[in-house]
Amino acid sequence: MGKHGMILFGHGARDARWKEPFTRLAAKLAAARGEAGPVGLAFLELMTPDLPSAIAAQADAGCESITVVPVFFGQGGHVRRDLPEIVARCQAGHPGVQLRCAGAVGEDEAVLDAIVQYCLGAAQD
Rank of each mutant, 00 (worst) to 15 (best):
M1A: 13
G2F: 10
K3P: 02
H4K: 10
I7V: 14
L8Q: 05
L8G: 03
F9N: 04
G10D: 01
G10I: 00
G10W: 00
A13D: 10
D15M: 07
A16M: 04
W18M: 02
K19D: 00
E20I: 08
P21D: 08
F22T: 00
R24P: 02
L25P: 03
L25A: 15
A27V: 01
A27Y: 03
L29K: 10
L29Y: 01
A31H: 09
A31N: 06
R33H: 08
R33Y: 10
E35H: 08
A36Q: 13
A36M: 08
A36C: 06
L41C: 07
A42S: 15
L44F: 14
T48L: 14
P49D: 09
D50V: 05
D50H: 13
L51T: 02
L51A: 07
Q58N: 03
Q58T: 00
Q58C: 05
Q58D: 01
A59R: 12
A59F: 11
A61Y: 13
A61D: 14
G62P: 09
E64M: 05
I66E: 04
V69C: 11
F72V: 09
F72E: 07
F72L: 09
Q75T: 05
Q75D: 10
G76D: 01
G76E: 04
G77T: 07
V79M: 04
V79L: 11
R80A: 12
D82Y: 11
L83R: 00
I86H: 04
V87I: 15
V87N: 08
A88N: 02
R89H: 06
C90E: 04
G93R: 03
V97D: 06
Q98M: 11
R100T: 14
C101G: 02
A102H: 09
A104T: 02
G106Q: 07
E107H: 01
D108S: 05
E109Q: 14
A110E: 13
A110F: 03
A110K: 12
A110M: 03
L112P: 00
D113E: 14
D113Y: 07
A114G: 13
A114K: 00
A114N: 05
I115D: 01
V116G: 06
Q117N: 08
Q117Y: 02
Q117A: 15
C119W: 12
G121Y: 01
A122Y: 12
A122Q: 15
A123S: 13
Q124L: 13
